[in-house]
Design a protein around this nucleic acid. Structure first.
Lengths: 225, 225
DNA sequence: TCCAAAACAGGACAGTCATCCTGTTTTACA
DNA sequence: TGTAAAACAGGATGACTGTCCTGTTTTGGA
């Protein structure tokens, strides 16, 4: 399928690859997929080379070490994935609350239809690499931080419109990201996305909040949500 | 320090080890520590042997493969850790809500005083091994399940005492475990336990629950919690 | 057209890994 | 005390792994 990319063209008119930076992009594609599916340590450079159809010399030219490759995956791909699936949808949502709700629901629906759970790319790499290397840790921590900040900013925006006046932005964001990450961990381990829905519903009901008034309050809220 | 254990005794009266199953226990100790600190793949059998002061033959005698060793760590150590730090405290707590709150607070306090965060043992191994091997995955999923069930059972017990009538046990448990796991992931990545406190406070305020009534309700609740 | 630099090919290399094997010692039991 | 089985010692082994090195090809600018 990708033979025309790896094949060597003979004529001057045709370039070696049909798009610039194509080799680097292909390696990043394969590495992103492999690190996500098997993890960093379990993905050998040999496997990556074979899957990407790239020689050792080419790979080493673009990424001097395996660590450099992983750093590029984190900064260019994982950060973009968080941006795409979380930050941008929350920014576009009518409110922070509705944004979080809709992302939870969208991810749950996606996982249910595709049948198996690979987990959150950021969370997966964060667990494996945070303690292994400071550079990895800092890069990953920055993405987590930006993720939470985007949600907190949305709460602040809501507050300037007179809503969410009793909500602490940082704490709301921390709980949203933590419950999502944790739910994905369990979903990955159980290979079952239903825990995501459980978490979302518990979040909507404000389970930890009240001793007695929960049920009555929710009748009203279910219209709003 | 442990020389008297690994040293070979010469007399009949003295045993090779001063307690039965000592060698196996020591290997499990070292493996548990190493898997927690560096992960499964990053921990080589050679390192484990050296740290435990055990030869290859001895290790292989008790654990035929590295996988068997990891399975034993999961079933004997990780499960026990979850039991000790979560299940038992929740069972003993005056209510599910208070149990969850106190475990969160206790872990946060412990992390803050010891200065760095290694993460949740269950969560760490779950991320690395869930997709790698079905046997690992099933063992880990069982621990997660028992953890949630213990919290759900406590909610059910509260309900039989007339409390928590508006709370769904499964959903409450899912959110408690998910937010804890996710908060630990972030704390590990950021090497900062403060996100745990943020999550706990957001949980106590029921951040996701209400549009307008949050602040007023919390004034009342702060006495109860 | 020419040439220096970048991009890539392809194998070599030293090191590490998990596992296994053959002996030797200790234990449990009769 | 005698003996079979368990517990351990300690190295051998073959299969990777990540990295690097020397050529060759392609490219962009003069």
């Amino acid at each position: 399928m990708s033979a025309e990319i790896t094949a060597r063209p003979k004529s001057r008119a045709q370039k070696r690859t049909n798009d610039p930076e194509g080799m680097r992009k292909k390696v990043l594609d394969v590495a992103e997929e492999a690190f996500q599916a098997r993890g960093y340590q379990a993905s050998s450079m040999g496997d990556l080379m074979a899957t990407a159809g790239v020689t050792g010399g080419a790979l080493h030219h673009h990424f001097a070490t395996k660590k450099a490759l992983a750093l590029a995956v984190i900064e260019e791909r994982v950060a973009a994935a968080v941006e795409e699936t979380w930050i941008e949808p929350v920014r576009m949502a009518p409110s922070a609350r509705e944004g979080v709700r809709s992302v939870f629901a969208a991810v749950a629906a996606e996982l249910e239809q595709q049948g198996f759970v690979r987990g959150c790319p950021l969370n997966n790499l964060a667990h494996e690499l945070s303690l292994a290397d400071p550079d990895f840790r800092i890069a990953l921590a920055g993405i987590f931080s930006g993720w939470r900040q985007a949600i907190a900013d949305k709460i602040s925006a809501d507050q300037q419109a007179g809503r969410e006046l009793g909500t602490d932005p940082q704490r709301f964001a921390a709980l949203a990201v933590a419950s999502y990450s944790g739910a994905m961990s369990m979903a990955k381990t159980a290979q079952d996305a239903s825990v995501l829905r459980d978490c979302l519903m518990a979040l909507e009901q404000g389970v930890m909040s009240s001793k007695t008034g929960t049920r009555r309050r929710n009748r009203i809220l279910h219209r709003a949500l």
